[in-house]
Amino acid sequence: MLRLEGIGAGYGAAQVLRDLTLKVRPGEILCLAGRNGAGKTTTMKAIMGLVPLSAGRITLDGVAISELPAHRVPKAGIGYVPQGRRLFGELTVAQNLEIGLMARGSPLAVLDAALDLFPRLRERMGQRAQTLSGGEQQMLAMARALCLDPAVLLLDEPTEGLQPTMIEAIRAAIRETRARGAAILLVEQRIDAVLSLADRIALIENGRVLDTLEAEALRRDHRRLERHLGV
């Protein structure tokens, strides 16, 4: 289980996260929902060790990953799909996936399983990542993270800017990853995505978790979520 216990983090003097606490269980999708600037992406970066903590700690199955150097965090079993994909654009699809495999020394079977979710990537292995379409790039970003065979998968707006068919493919992959037992922390702005994917939803504002709710409750009363997201 991934636990964030009273964490504080920010950029220089600008404090973004303040005493933020949440947990993500294996086999569930926890969605972080909040307005722009609430601290969702910073939470992801703090988990990955890319933003230093000023308070609190982060543990994965009892291991304090917030005390590890950033490059050791993925080795502990955390895969990251950042906002905007951030692929290694000049490298080929195969090289991007190889970097994912190298992160934890995963066997080739893990790559096969990732490619089974996105069979289109098999035809693009020699192509540079920056030449793929937006949807294919998102598939590659997901597959690269899945190559770590992660216990926890962090997804920051994975369907942003994609056409409907691609969105469905990504959502199906997210559900499949949950079914394999991974804990998924998802940042989403789209209410339909939040309601269709999440098991629980953490409402975040000004760097704090205001409330964590079962998704079922919000499906019955999604105006509360709309109010919170400011849409």
Partner: peptide
């Protein structure tokens, strides 16, 4: 080359 292209993502992939 991965480090050259994106330092943070290089860290995020170990």
């Amino acid at each position: 080359r991965a480090t050259q292209l994106d330092r943070d993502m290089a860290l995020a992939f170990g």
